[in-house]
Design a protein around this nucleic acid. Structure first.
Lengths: 152, 152
DNA sequence: GTCATATATTTGCCTTGACAAATATTTTTC
DNA sequence: GAAAAATATTTGTCAAGGCAAATATATGAC
């Protein structure tokens, strides 16, 4: 008996695979840009700084949820980033369990230094899409994300 | 002096972040479905079996490139999957350096068992998109992938 | 108010994947 | 055709992230 693939010679990647591939390329491109700009940060660390820079101070767990990172992993990232002087752990004013993570001046400066990297990569990624298509892509992705999160 | 985020209260996620979030949800949903169907496989292992089932036997490095996995990591995944009787390492006919990785009957049966999981997750993810939008999403993602790979 | 439950952070443990080195074989160059 | 470069696989090493347990605090039920 022949296995079930025998008759299939070509198969498009599913949306799932495709999204994985795109993400992989984005991470690679972003880390390459950072390195080329002299910023010594991994992709996850870039995401953390970006979030803090754009949204402002927040607790470690809010930050962890925002970048889809495990709480324990976040603690260790904060250790590293704080050790390098890019952010600060402050006590949270309303909740004594929690922290208020905020960028230092150095962290903010680093963020300003890497903003162009971020922009270049996003522009490169979307260069084959016109403005309308970019909006649609974002819209579709947001709807997919919502569909996955609001599980039936 | 106030840091540069002070005036920004809300900022949309970039396409980059959005794609990362979607991928995370897809992986989570897929692993949950697999577990619920009694298939004890991680997402990466699912991808490997899927690829072999749909495309047919190929070398370990082809497989590694297809699922964006490091060669060393692939060796160890093959060790596990072969140990569980889901695939076989055969000698490659044209290239004595390489292997011909092929599914066993058990591997193929496992693939047939998890096909519905895959379909359910992809359907759930895209349930808020109509047929045209699904095609567009795929098209956009393929163009983004191509743009990232054909670096200027 | 008190107790049970939920949440925030930290730490230990373990798995996974990236990177580099080693070996075997193929392909390219001259 | 021999040397050089490229490719396939394996293994060692390391960093990163997930999960579970521990601790501290907050929130909700009664």
């Amino acid at each position: 008996m022949s296995p079930s693939h025998a008759s299939i010679s070509y198969q498009q990647d599913s949306i799932g695979v495709l999204i994985g591939l795109v993400r992989g390329e984005l991470v690679r491109a972003m880390e390459a840009e950072l390195q080329a700009s002299g910023v010594d940060l991994r992709f996850t660390q870039f995401l953390i700084l970006k979030r803090l820079a754009l949204i402002g101070p927040m607790s470690a767990s809010e930050l962890a949820r925002a970048v889809e990172l495990d709480g324990g992993a976040m603690t260790r990232q904060l250790d590293q980033l704080e050790g390098r002087g890019l952010l600060r752990r402050q006590p949270h004013e309303q909740d004594r369990r929690a922290l208020r993570i905020e960028l230092t001046e150095l962290g903010d400066a680093t963020w300003r230094q890497m903003t162009p990297c971020n922009d270049r990569v996003l522009e490169a990624a979307q260069r084959a899409l016109d403005a309308t298509e970019r909006e649609q892509l974002r819209d579709y992705l947001e709807r997919v994300l919502k569909a996955l999160r609001d599980k039936p």
